[in-house]
Design a binder for these strands. Structure first.
Length: 466
DNA sequence: GCGATCAGAT
DNA sequence: CACATCTGATCGC
């Protein structure tokens, strides 16, 4: 759970928790009754989605993709990676090793299963799978790629209380919407107008075999970004256009400070026919995932074999290591720093022109920016939600600093993107009942409360950011 | 000593 | 720059 997840990371109407494995606290009014969690889901392995999963006491089943499982079991924090790479650690210290404990082989060759377990229920994409809760209730869950980072998925949850879609973290760029339109596992929930916008068939009664999504639990990390951002492919191609201007002796250090910038590696490999040098840890992750075989084929552990490097950020290999803020290695090789940033499409067009001009004038450019966005800004989110016209849209995260302003704006931001009908199995009282029985709060949209807290804040400090 | 939580920096 | 990550401090069990 990144901070600020409504419903305590439950996805009403189902007793399922997503990306939060901490003990459900009864911070709300209810007594210390523990809400029943039917099932845990994990969308991807960025650390802000792993809250509570490091606890040795956690012992529940977690549904995730095969790649997420592999990456999670191989997860090492930076400090441990550094010690391992300096040979101060005999073995890798894997943060989530306790989630899978292998049975022990006894001296007589038999297996001792006492204490062994495998809590991670890896599930293939596009494979509807039945999961039964302890109380006998059951749901069918289908995993769909989320275009966020390796192993990242959306969850389609279908059951007798209707269907909900949890996006996890999501980059719904144009090609991604097209792939959803053609995906038979999600097609029954598409809104008619999203597939045949020119259709003149009015007054056709809505068929009951074409259900609506009850809710979309949406990646709202970039909800307040109202500008268009470049497609990943355009960003990566724009970068390689600039890289191509440099002499072939120039080396490049790609500052991939988190997983999800692999589009850069792939564009570089395609354009220059070169591999990307990655460190031991990333090599282990990428070579043991199966979702992107091309990515797996373009990485190398041999730093001397390529000009392109994505090795440890704070412990670069000798071929791209520079002192302080210098732009050359001690042996005199020019090293250009490639940095992923947030940038609008308009800003990107201008940046490319300007940087191209600088390079053709012969100026030395030591930093190249590349606007690979791993979250959708508002225009993409609206197009994504409009594809389905669900009954509700719920934020996966809210910014605590905004004190409910973002929650209050949601309805207006998705005006025209939701179903016309207002009545729903989980609207109003049913949703209240769910929240009561699971001891969670509904997102606050009380405008008067927001107003008074803003006034207090304004009194307290001069520089309020609104 | 572990784990939860927060502030702060990059 | 970045909204993910790491570190250090603090607190409770």
């Amino acid at each position: 759970m990144p901070t600020g997840t409504p419903y305590n990371a439950f996805i009403p109407p189902y007793p399922i928790r997503v990306d939060d494995f901490s003990t459900p606290s009864s911070s709300s009014t209810n007594e210390s009754q523990t809400p029943a969690v039917g099932l845990y889901l994990l969308t991807h392995t960025h650390t802000d989605h792993l809250n509570g999963l490091t606890a040795r006491s956690f012992g529940q089943t977690v549904v995730c993709s095969h790649d997420a499982k592999e990456m999670l079991l191989r997860h090492e924090v930076y400090a441990e990676r550094a010690l391992r790479d300096m040979d101060l650690r005999a073995e890798n210290v894997r943060s989530y090793a306790h989630l899978r404990i292998e049975p022990q082989r006894m001296e007589d060759g038999s297996m001792n299963y006492a204490g062994s377990r495998d809590l991670l229920r890896a599930t293939s994409l596009h494979t509807p799978t039945l999961f039964r809760f302890n109380d006998g209730q059951a749901v069918t869950i289908t995993l769909l790629d989320a275009n966020h980072c390796p192993g990242a998925v959306m969850f389609l949850v279908e059951g007798d209380k209707g269907a909900v879609l949890h996006t996890g973290d999501l980059r719904a760029e144009p090609w991604f919407l097209d792939s959803l339109r053609h995906n038979p596992y999600i097609q029954r929930y598409l809104d008619a107008s999203s597939t045949s916008p020119t259709s003149n068939c009015k007054n056709v009664p809505r068929s009951t075999i074409l259900p609506k999504l009850e809710a979309i639990y949406l990646d709202t990390a970039c909800l307040l970004n109202t500008y268009d951002v470049p497609n990943k492919a355009d960003a990566a191609d724009g970068l390689t256009d600039l890289v191509a201007i440099y002499p072939e002796t120039t080396r490049f250090f790609i500052n991939a400070w988190t997983l999800g910038y692999e589009e850069i590696y792939k564009a570089v490999a395609r354009t220059f026919g070169a591999q990307i040098h990655v460190d031991r840890y990333k090599h282990g992750l990428y070579s043991h995932t199966t979702g992107d075989p091309f990515l797996t084929s373009i990485i190398t552990k041999d730093g001397s074999s390529t000009r392109f490097h994505a090795c440890e950020r704070f412990d670069r290999c000798e071929h791209v290591r520079v002192n302080g803020r210098e732009s050359h290695t001690p042996s005199g090789h020019h090293v250009v720093y490639v940095n992923p940033v947030n940038m609008s499409t308009a800003g990107w067009d201008q940046y490319r022109k300007q940087t191209r001009a600088q390079l053709t004038r012969g100026e030395q450019v030591n930093v190249l920016l590349v606007p690979i966005a791993r979250h959708s800004p508002l225009p993409e989110l609206r197009a994504f939600v409009s594809l389905f016209k669900p009954r509700r849209v719920e934020p996966n995260t809210l910014d605590p600093a905004l004190k409910g302003l973002d929650a209050a704006c949601l309805k207006a931001m998705f005006a025209g993107c939701l179903a016309e009908e207002t009545s729903s199995p989980t609207s109003g009282r049913a949703l209240d009942a769910f929240c009561t029985s699971h001891a969670v709060d509904r997102p606050k949209v009380a405008l008067d409360e927001i107003e008074s807290s803003l006034i207090q804040e304004a009194d307290a400090s001069e520089d309020v950011a609104f």
